[in-house]
Simulated assay, not measured.
Amino acid sequence: MFPKPKLRLELRDVCHKSTSLFLKNFDSSKDFAELVETVLTRLYSIPDHKDVSTTGPIPAHTMIPGTRSVTLILRDMDGVAYTTGTDLDSDHKEIHLSLSYLNHVASQKPGYSARTEILGVVCHELVHCFQWNGNGTCNGGLIEGIADWVRLNAGYIPPHWKREAGKSWDSGYQNTGYFLDWIEKSRGIGSVYKINQALCNKEYKNDKFWDHLFGKDVGSLWKEYAESLKKSKEEESDSHGDPNLKMQIRIKKEVEGHD
């Protein structure tokens, strides 16, 4: 049973047109609590050791931050959203969501709704309320990548996201999120769980962190990931004109979790 923090909603400008957009697409009493459960489930569900795809070893005890409350604040500001601790203490979190940003959400691409974007942004920010950060030493790209990995696996995927390795592994957000998704599939279910647990009350040291968990440094893992993407594209290119081969490639990708 996961902890159930107190959840609050604060509307700084009820007359702003984006406030009504938000309220039409976000059920505060239902969606907020369900998103918290979604985040905690993906970050802290202990993998089944009997599952052959589970990576090991798994920490003996699951440690979850003692977040006691989360306040979602809608206000007019630059950017999209950010999460911070309150003046009271760091166990009380605030998510600040931009009303100005929500102005642009209403005109999303066909097939991608304002509701999906709102849920995705709030999901991402809620991860910051409940993830570990190596006592403040964790690589920022990894912090943001874990948040987008949760958003990815929750199904709130914006149309501009792409599975690619053109930047460094720690450029964060969906770029690192897809990398973590590949680690989860290639190194076993529970890999992201292990990464997050390893950041509990321990300093993050890039030269040791990844090798300790997966037996390789992060540069080698990133190179392997990039090569897997290149191979996937080559297979797709080779399949053109052969419907049977193309179907086999598509099925293989679905099994492996590729786009």
Rank of each mutant, 00 (worst) to 15 (best):
I64V: 11
D181Y: 11
C200S: 07
T176A: 15
G241K: 09
I195Y: 07
D87R: 14
L99F: 03
G140R: 08
V36L: 01
T55P: 00
N196Q: 10
Y173A: 00
I58W: 05
L199P: 06
D87S: 12
S28C: 10
Y82G: 08
T86L: 10
L126H: 02
A165Y: 04
P47Q: 12
S113R: 03
F26C: 02
D13M: 03
G172E: 00
E164S: 11
W210V: 04
T19Q: 04
P158T: 02
L180M: 00
S171L: 12
I64M: 14
E235I: 00
V150T: 03
R75C: 05
G190V: 01
G215H: 12
K167S: 08
D27F: 00
D76E: 15
Q131I: 07
G166W: 14
K252D: 05
R75Q: 15
F26R: 05
G120W: 01
S53I: 05
I183A: 11
I249K: 09
N133T: 08
Y225H: 06
E236N: 13
N175E: 13
L72N: 08
H258F: 14
Q197I: 09
G257M: 01
T41Y: 12
L142E: 00
A165C: 10
K231T: 13
K194H: 11
D27S: 00
T67D: 10
Y193M: 02
I143C: 12
C129G: 09
Y112C: 08
E224Q: 09
G134N: 04
D181I: 06
I46G: 09
K4N: 03
K50P: 01
S100P: 06
T54K: 07
D259P: 13
I58T: 15
D207R: 12
L221T: 03
P110E: 11
D217Y: 15
W210P: 10
E235K: 03
P47L: 11
R42E: 12
G136W: 05
N206Q: 12
Q174D: 15
